[in-house]
């Protein structure tokens, strides 16, 4: 069944050949985030304005005097994407109303990493969602501060090694806290659209981008972005990892449309988390007990999600 689902999602030939995120960008070899950005840009089309937080994407796409962006793009700071998007959307609203420009349905999009979203940028994002600006926010979650050297964020999963949650003689787990559930924080704002996606499921991802664009009001998309450099895994398995994280139930793909939960891909049986963890050097130190702990947590969370899907 899982295999069937997958095949249904793999329809590369129907996707536009436009690359609004141009090659020549300097992302690491096998970067899952660059892949995700590429997919998002394919779905977004040309009639957009992108606001980018400081982070990997901004660095690898905009080294002066060159740019990878074929759509209007602005970067200012790390923690203010929500506010800058708000300003742009408001500017368009006011200028259209005052007859200074025509309404051509421009879509306003925010890009940030997990640190720029769930840590330092959370306040600005929360403000923008609460005020109800019409925008799509894409969090590219590579589960740590990768651009600056793999420091832990609140989005780093339990047990992962990072340079600021190292594995030492005394502290043997790495990250000691559970990953912050950012999509649920977005849901708590009662915005019309929240979804999770992985570029290993590109068609699903692009559908979600389009839905987020079409819906009036704030839309939040949380995109799993594999980082071979920071996760200590070979670059060629980027897509495989992004698939396994879904198949193990660690990062389920779902949508919350006007408060109603929908699972995008369901599995009668989840693969054991071990299959996902063992492929990455950042989890190498984990003991059987640690892995069991993670397994139990994943099952519990997955169950909770399924109850929400059924409950509505």
């Amino acid at each position: 069944m899982a295999q069937e689902q997958e095949e249904k999602l793999f329809l590369p030939r129907f996707i536009t050949t436009d690359e609004n995120f141009a090659p020549g960008h300097r992302a690491c070899i096998g970067c899952g985030e660059a892949l995700a950005v590429r997919h998002v840009c394919k779905a977004l089309g040309n009639n957009v304005i992108i606001v980018n937080a400081t982070g990997c994407i901004e660095i690898f796409s905009s080294l002066l005097p060159l740019t990878s962006w074929r759509v209007p793009w602005i970067h200012t700071l790390f923690e203010n994407v929500g506010a800058v998007v708000s300003g742009i959307e408001s500017a368009y609203k006011a200028r259209i109303r005052k007859g200074k420009i025509e309404d051509r349905g421009v879509v306003f999009v925010g890009f940030a990493g997990d640190g720029g979203t769930s840590d330092i940028g959370l306040q600005a994002l929360s403000g923008a969602m609460e005020r109800g600006h019409n925008f799509l926010y894409c969090c590219f979650d590579n589960e740590a501060y990768m651009n600056t050297g793999i420091q832990r964020s609140s989005s780093t999963p339990y047990g992962a090694w990072t340079t600021t949650a190292p594995v030492g003689k005394k502290s043997i787990v790495g990250q000691m806290t559970w990953k912050k559930n950012m999509p649920e924080i977005a849901v708590a704002h009662r915005i019309p659209y929240v979804a999770t996606a992985s570029p290993s499921f590109p068609f699903d991802l692009m559908d979600k981008v389009k839905r987020g664009m079409e819906i009036e009001g704030p839309a939040y998309l949380h995109i799993f972005s594999v980082c071979p450099t920071g996760w200590r895994c070979p670059p060629e398995i980027t897509v495989e990892i992004g698939r396994l994280v879904v198949e193990t139930g660690i990062f389920p793909l779902y949508e919350v449309i006007n408060g109603e939960y929908h699972l995008s891909v369901d599995f009668p049986e989840l693969k054991p988390v071990r299959e996902y963890l063992k492929k990455q050097g950042r989890f190498r130190h984990l003991t059987e007990k640690d892995i069991e702990r993670i397994q139990a947590r994943v099952e519990e969370e997955y169950q909770r999600l399924k109850e929400k899907v059924g409950g509505k």
Binding site: P23, L64, T67, R70
Partner: peptide, 21 residues
């Protein structure tokens, strides 16, 4: 440099050869 270091040529990074990596 353009005012404010604006880059006006869309997708100009396509001139950059990453194949050397």
């Amino acid at each position: 440099l353009e005012i404010g270091c604006v880059v006006t040529e869309p997708g100009s990074a396509a001139s950059y050869k990453t194949g050397e990596w």
